[in-house]
Amino acid sequence: MLSRAWHVGWPALLVGGAGLAGTGGAGDGETGWTRPPDLIAYLLVVAAAAATLTLRRRPSVTLAGCGAAVVAYLAAGYPVGPILVAVPVASAGAAVAWPAARAVPANVLLGLAVYVAGGVRFGLPYSGVAGTWPLLVLLAVALPTAIGAGVRIRREALADLHEAHVQRVLADERTRVAHELHDSVGHGLAVIAMQAGVALHVLDRDPGKVRTSLEAIRAASRDALDGMRAELGLLRDPGGDGPRRPAAGLAEAPVLLRRIRSGGLAIVADLWAGELPPEVDAAAYRILQESLTNVLRHAGPATAWVSVARDGDELVVRVLDDGRATGAVAEGSGIAGMRARAARLGGTVDVDLRPGGGLAVVARLPLEPPGRRP
């Protein structure tokens, strides 16, 4: 509350304080004043100070009020004094609040009004203090206008930068949500489609296999729904305190492999078991999941070789298959998502067609992502 009052009231304190303290001695040493400061002079100072209270909300009122008070003060024959502080205050406020196309003409009118009032007061030719009057008025209007315009330009630039940052954050978040939905829901649908095909194929001759496929479909659909609900919850209430689904990690890799094997894909796996930073653990799992989902979708009857191993200060995830993948698969949206995940951690994902058929996916993830390095 106090900071807001200061923010609004400091121009009035400046104009009022200087005017009330200095108006009484403004004419000392000068001759020819027709009217010494009296109660009306102080009332005009107070009026100019009061006009500055609307500086931030209604600068037009400030310009009119300050201009009228200063012009009346000069026209009445009072000595040039601190009331003139109201002129640069009003000029600067207008330049901050308005675009230059509006502020400059308004401040020029203010300056002309003050200049003419002083000219009438001093008469021609100017002499003594009056001789500096044109320069004084010019500086009182032009310099604050330039400073105020600079402040406005800086504020607009900062606002543009902030807006650009907000848009970038929103775009990153949309991309992250898209990747999460693609990975969790897309994987679940791929498993469901594969298991449904298996169930239909053996429906009449192997009821046990049908039951296994239906159980796999139920588990995959539940996981996909849980992932989708978690992401939709984040979209609805990004800052909420509600429960969040724990990020998947390599600890769940055996379940992932078992689920995909049940769909008919042969997998040879060698998984390194070690403690990982949470973001590396989650990225490695999602990359492994997306790679195997691609094999399940596109490779046809195939075998996949999976390796997760530590290589120095990197975690290396390899998924090779001997299926019938094409170049289109190697450049699909799932691959782009894997590369984006790795890039956020300072890592890479290389995807190549194997000479004998199939794809080779090799992801390298730093064990100390950029945000965690000292």
Rank of each mutant, 00 (worst) to 15 (best):
R286C: 05
V280Q: 02
E290W: 02
D270G: 10
W272M: 09
L296M: 14
H298A: 03
Y285W: 13
A266G: 14
A269V: 11
L265R: 13
L271Q: 12
V268H: 15
I267Q: 03
Y285R: 10
L292Y: 00
A273Q: 13
V295S: 03
E279S: 14
A266T: 15
A284R: 06
G274M: 12
V280R: 02
V268Q: 12
P277V: 12
L296Q: 12
W272Y: 15
A273G: 11
A282Y: 04
L271H: 10
D270E: 15
Q289R: 15
T293V: 08
A284I: 08
I267A: 07
Q289G: 08
A284K: 06
V280I: 13
N294E: 09
D281P: 09
A269Y: 06
E275P: 12
G274E: 15
R286Q: 14
L288H: 08
V268F: 13
L265E: 03
E275F: 09
N294D: 11
A283P: 04
N294K: 07
L271F: 07
I287G: 00
G274S: 14
Y285M: 05
E275I: 10
L288R: 08
S291V: 03
P277W: 09
E279K: 12
D281F: 05
L288F: 08
L271R: 11
A299Y: 04
V280L: 07
I287Y: 01
P277F: 07
Q289T: 12
P278L: 06
V268R: 15
L265T: 15
L265Q: 09
A273Y: 11
P277A: 14
P278N: 10
E275Y: 09
G274Y: 13
N294R: 09
A269Q: 13
A282Q: 09
Q289E: 14
I287S: 00
L271V: 15
T293E: 02
L276C: 10
A299W: 02
A273M: 10
L276K: 07
H298G: 01
R286E: 08
A283G: 08
H298E: 01
H298D: 01
Q289K: 11
R297M: 03
L288Y: 07
E275D: 11
A266L: 15
V295P: 00
A273L: 13
S291C: 04
N294S: 14
A269L: 07
A269F: 06
E275R: 13
T293Y: 00
A282I: 08
A269W: 06
E290Y: 00
Q289M: 14
V280N: 03
E290H: 08
H298I: 02
A284Q: 07
S291L: 00
I267R: 05
R297Y: 06
N294H: 08
T293L: 02
I287V: 14
D281N: 10
N294L: 10
